[in-house]
């Protein structure tokens, strides 16, 4: 059965809290004016070290805005957000982002893209080349180090972007609909890859998506958001063991949970389509 729980009741309290989102609100446009849009309203979320969190919801529910706030690209209108007890004020290499459109640097090779964050740290040339090669191997792109982004496929670009985001050794990896621009088959393959990579690298992950099966397949905890205003409506713990493998997609619990989530989210999705 589906478990709906409140964030503060999360089990395994021994694991330290990494990201703490408290009563966060975000308003776009004129303050109090007619044009003001409430993107986020009283959002609470606690992310523990090593957790894989899926942020699931229809378009307009503010999930990407929330990710942008965690990244430090934008501030909050109300409430507070902390990382390891310190407020998040700006982008930092302890929280790297993987974008839907890859956002690779087109004028750099795959190798140079992955080295970017290491160069920023002031790491010596040989050391960063070695680390980048390891990460490129981790995302299975070996042999493509010297290719430019326009010379490789969409799936390969996203692998390169993941390696680039892992390079500064972040505390948390923020993924903003990373497989949204890929075809269905590539998407399924990369879901399994990210399941493997995240457990191998042992990273905390915040994964924004509007794909229900993708959210459930990858996450330890699915955070479901609802639109207008953007709110957290429920959280679902996923008891499936790690690492996640393809056959878990036919696990009865998985199938049932995906169906139940679809039934609860359907009205909102339909509402979103009509607007």
């Amino acid at each position: 059965m589906m478990q709906t729980i409140i964030a503060s009741d999360t089990p395994s309290t021994a694991v330290p809290v990494q990201i703490d989102i408290r009563h966060v609100g975000k308003v776009f446009g004129g303050k109090g004016g007619d044009s003001a849009v409430i993107a986020l309203d009283d959002v609470n979320l606690t992310i523990r070290k090593g957790e894989f969190i899926s942020l699931l919801g229809p378009s307009g529910c503010g999930k990407s805005t929330l990710l942008g706030i965690v990244a430090g690209f934008q501030g909050v209108s109300s409430g507070k957000i902390e990382q390891n007890g310190r407020p998040i004020l700006r982008p930092e290499p302890s929280r790297t982002v993987v974008f839907q459109d890859y956002a690779l640097f087109g004028w750099m090779t795959v190798q140079q893209n992955v080295e970017f964050g290491l160069k920023a740290k002031g790491m010596a040339k040989r050391e960063r080349a070695a680390i980048a090669r390891e990460l490129i191997a981790l995302v299975r792109l070996s042999g493509f180090e010297d290719k430019y982004p326009h010379q490789i496929s969409g799936g390969m670009k996203q692998r390169a972007a993941i390696a680039r985001a892992l390079a500064p050794d972040p505390d948390i990896l923020l993924m903003d609909e990373p497989f949204g621009a890929l075809d269905a088959q590539t998407r399924v393959l990369l879901q399994e890859e990210i399941a493997r990579i995240s457990s191998e690298a042992g990273k905390t992950v915040l994964f924004v998506t509007h794909g229900i099966d993708e959210a459930v397949f990858l996450a330890d905890r699915v955070v479901v958001m609802s639109p207008r205003p953007g709110r957290v409506r429920q959280e679902v713990n996923v008891p499936l063991p790690r690492p996640r493998t393809a056959e878990m997609r036919s696990d009865p619990w998985f199938v049932q949970t995906v169906n139940e989530l679809w039934e609860t989210l359907k009205p909102e999705w339909q509402k979103g389509e009509e607007e």
Partner: peptide, 11 residues
Amino acid sequence: NQMNAALCLGA
């Protein structure tokens, strides 16, 4: 996004 990517990588 490219600018944001660079910033979050610590540029």
